[in-house]
Amino acid sequence: MKGAVVTLGLEEFQFIRTFLQQESAIQLDDEKQYLVESRLQPLARREGFDTVGELVFKLRANKTGVLRQKVVEAMTTHETSFFRDIRPFEALKLSVLPKLIAARAATRELRIWCMACSTGQEPYSLALLLRENFPELQSWKVKILATDLSMQVLEKAKAGVFNQLEVNRGLPTPMLMKYFQRQGMNWQINDAIRQMIDFQPMNLIEQWPLMPPIDVVLLRNVLIYFDIETKKSILSRVRQRLRPDGYLFLGGAENTFNLDDGFERVELERSSVYRMRRLNETKD
């Protein structure tokens, strides 16, 4: 971002930093001033401010209100693609789901939770993977819960409409042909796939709703944005909601070490997956 006009003073940056920490537990380093500028610039323009500084001024006067929510949303990362990183999906297809399907043969129920699902590529990838590889699950009760902090991205996710660049990213063309309809320059995923997913707003740092135990949690590329205490709190709550033989997926740069002893890492299909440590195992 060299050469960009910085209109944000240090004090304003500090305000935004504290604000984001309180509202969403997102941590920004000292050198992230450019990130605030670049993320908030389009919002400032949309809201009719000349500079990000003016937006911040307004934000300080406005203790509640929609502007606060909009700032949090603008600062939340939405970088995503279908079947992102591939390997976790290989692990699900070849190892995790076959094991869970065998283990749940009596109840015929499966619950998967995509935390921070953003614009929906992750839960839709999961739904497509289930539909393509495990057709027997159509007679099961399968629930994919997909949550995100941002109402704006959830609306987009629910609609299941993606532009050409988005469907180009990571989505195998045969699946595009089979499960999407073209609408002008966009593509919409079909109703049968959309109905497999329950999209709900949720802020991970606030209280979590009661829910039945979950078999698989996808919490990928989320923890990196939080401070250590928040990471610990989230992981501990994931553990409380996961079934004892359930699985947790984290992002490639994330792990549970020094954060939560209750998980152990296993390698499945060259992907790191976390399982609950057995109770009788001694911890060192």
Partner: peptide
């Protein structure tokens, strides 16, 4: 194109990430 035997399809415009993800696929 898929019937003719294409393995994958990249729609222009694309980014380097898009192409690499498709190759990975």
């Amino acid at each position: 194109a898929m019937m003719a035997g294409v393995d994958e399809f990249v729609m222009k415009p694309f980014t380097s990430d898009i192409l690499l993800e498709k190759l990975q696929l």
